[in-house]
Design a protein around this nucleic acid. Sequence first.
RNA 1: GCGGGCGUGGUGGAACCGGUAGACACACAGGACUUAAAAUCCUGAGGGGGUAUCCCCGUGCGGGUUCGACUCCCGCCGCCCGCACCA
Length: 882
Amino acid sequence: MTAKSVERYNPRVEEPRWQRLWEERQSFVVSNDDPRPRYYVLEMFPYPSGRIHMGHVRNYTMGDVLARYKRARGFNVLHPMGWDAFGLPAENAAIERGVHPGTWTRQNIAAMKAQLKAIGLGLDWSREIATCDVAYYHQQQKLFLDFLEAGLVARKQSKVNWDPVDMTVLANEQVIDGRGWRSGAPVEQRELTQWFLKVSDYSEALLEALDGLDGWPEKVRVMQRNWIGRSEGLRLLFEVLPGASAGATSIEVFTTRPDTIFGASFIALSPDHPLAARLAESDGALRDFIAECHRQGTATEVIEKAEKHGHFTGLRVRHPVRDGETLPVYVANFVLMDYGTGAIFGCPAHDQRDLDFARRYGLPVLPVVLPEGADPAAFAVEDEAYTGPGTIYNSGFLDGLAIEAAKARIAAHFGGREVDGRPQGVVEVNYRLRDWGISRQRYWGCPIPVVHCEVCGTVPVPHKDLPVVLPDDVSFDRPGNPLDHHPTWKHVACPRCGGPAQRETDTMDTFVDSSWYYARFTAPGAAGPTDRAAADAWLPVDQYIGGIEHAILHLLYSRFFARAMHKTGHVSVDEPFRGLFTQGMVTHETYKSGSGEWLAPEDVVLEASGETRTARHAETGAPVAIGAIEKMSKSKKNVVDPDEIVATYGADTARWFMLSDSPPERDVQWTEAGIEGAGRFLQRVWKLVHESIGVFERFPGAVAPSVLEEGELLEVRRLTHRTVARVGEDIEALRFNRAVAHIYELANGLSRLASEETAPAAMFGTAGHVGVLREGIERLVQLLAPMMPHLAESCWAALGKDGIVADAPWPEADPGLLVEASIVLPVQVNGKRRGEISVPVDASQATIEKEALSLEAVSRMLGGSAPKKVIIVPNRIVNVVV
RNA sequence: GCGGGCGUGGUGGAACCGGUAGACACACAGGACUUAAAAUCCUGAGGGGGUAUCCCCGUGCGGGUUCGACUCCCGCCGCCCGCACCA
């Protein structure tokens, strides 16, 4: 060993140094006027909860690797960061700790910004935005007014989850087992007048465009398709027979199975159907039934167990295709008001719910679809509805038709007819997707810029009066919306008539804030919501990275917003994100004490004897149970604080570990051993670079590797260039774990050359050796630069290279070094590997065959006879068939 | 129930388009260095058999296609995720 011993790399000194330098040089500040090709990398911006967690580290490291790589590839890379800063936790902090939501939020932002900087992210902080800044929500209010004018906003009544203690609307996610998540009070269903964004106007567009989003995971596209939930069917009118019908002369239903109309045996109304309400006025039992349905709630669990119940209304309708027959009308608990028409016809033989209902109330079950090959005389439906394909029978003029043909036939049959003065049998497409209710009875959100006037009604706040600013002097000493309690804020003059009026005190759902921030980043200081030229230049986002938990809401809302902003002239795209990547979670083992309490990793000492792992408490020594590997969460205490990791190991080590091993779309398990392994590699690279510098100093003058290298030197050159090519491909495809593995291989190969003990003595110090080593080391540092940027800078400087590695262009692989001159071909006999031959790349088939057959193992298997066949796959394999 | 995905050593995972299964890493074992430990370096390893050349088995299970299957097809089993009374 000749190299002088090297100090360990000290990230505590080196990392802040490079972070300062990048900042001074404004290395990651990007100009909209830069002529180079653009690339927009975006990670989902965080909610400023106060601390970043390992999930953030993983997410932002991935984005940073891509951004730094693209930058080295010569792109003008936009890689911004901001804060999804409105939301309920800030109000809770205000209630619990008496701190103003704005103060709390801004403190959190400052803390988290420092943390993000400490992990060395190459972000353009000059474009930082926080959604709670007036500058941001001012623009959002403009968007709202534009949307209003464009007919994209509606004000309508809807049912909401109402917490009677906190006096606020709760999102579905905030209702746990029918109770408010904070108050614990049973949640009520209330009808409130709310503001809606008309997402459903774009149901078809949002659905169709999914096919073109080939840069998105299929899983997310499927989830959105299901969420939009398109179904095509027929609207049918059933004529109500005269009687106590509360004035109804017909009932309209929506069905996707009009082919089963001959099997209809009842009509069912939703408990929320207007007719049900009218009938209940004179029917106490029905009133009780409807109340019971409402009590039952809509929690998933309840629905799963709920049995089909109904109440006969006394009404009957004329069967539309069976002359002289009538059907009973029920109110049933399983019929939803907000899908279709809130009424169905039941065909028990071919729908499980209808069958359950029919069995309970003794209604006829008549099969009208005959499975292929079934005997019409014997086929019967017992407990299971038949929903498969077949031929229509028992159905008059539909008999003998296939299902699709029967649907068309029925549509034609009703076409042009009228019932009750309305067209019968209208073909219709229904979507599950509903309009987006954005009203929240909360303080810490973007005020909805409208005024309610007794004379003029709902009046938009004129543009000149924007922004509608949140008042600072609010109190949280009683439940409800502080904006509503504020002594003066809501009292204004009507912008139209000047008379006394009231501001809208609801604020917008925070999902509105995050539905357009990607556009704002393209020109964060623009006078309007966007600078059209900047937005056009940058959008769509080339690569968006975030968690799968946003597969529906955020991503669907953003897609709607892009269309709405397109319509109102703020952007030119319909799709905001060309590429989407959903990364996996960071998980950790869980630990439980003997008394069943969760224990934090730092309170646990792990022990291994052979391959058995045990754990005990760090202080008491009591045995600890090692539990399941789960997503890091405070409640299970299995969290690791990024700050502590950075303090102990440095940012580069944390980044490297987050990129290693696990494919980025899968969960990664945080382990002490894993982070230590990453730290070891960092030190190894540092040592390797300095060992190599020692070689360069001992043998000055030898620089460029030549084409003459052979043997091991040539192999290492090949390895270097192969790794350059592979790492580039891997990063482009976001396969960071593979890039990491390839870098390990290169480092291993170079280690042999750098040490006098392992390198062949004859070559050590020759011009070829030094040149190949230098090339390899420099490439290694460059390949590491996107992943361990600080270490790479330190090495780059130690190597005496000009400038900083962050500004160095990405290395190119020499194509000539990617192909081998001779190649090792495995030789199989009957598909089983028996040996290998080394042949020139351009060897003829005959040569290869001769070589292969002359292998001892092969000739032994042949036993003197000629092979049946020899298959040669060029550059791949030889298979001898005996 | 419907939809999507996955199943490879002790562990995380690799294997491009059907062509050497287990790259790379972690953990483990042995060795070197050290008074000792840590750190570092070297070596080993899918399972079974044999001193060894080498042989057999092996990618959840059972079949199939193919010269050749982790990869394609059919049928099972198990796990994960999403949606869920949507007519």
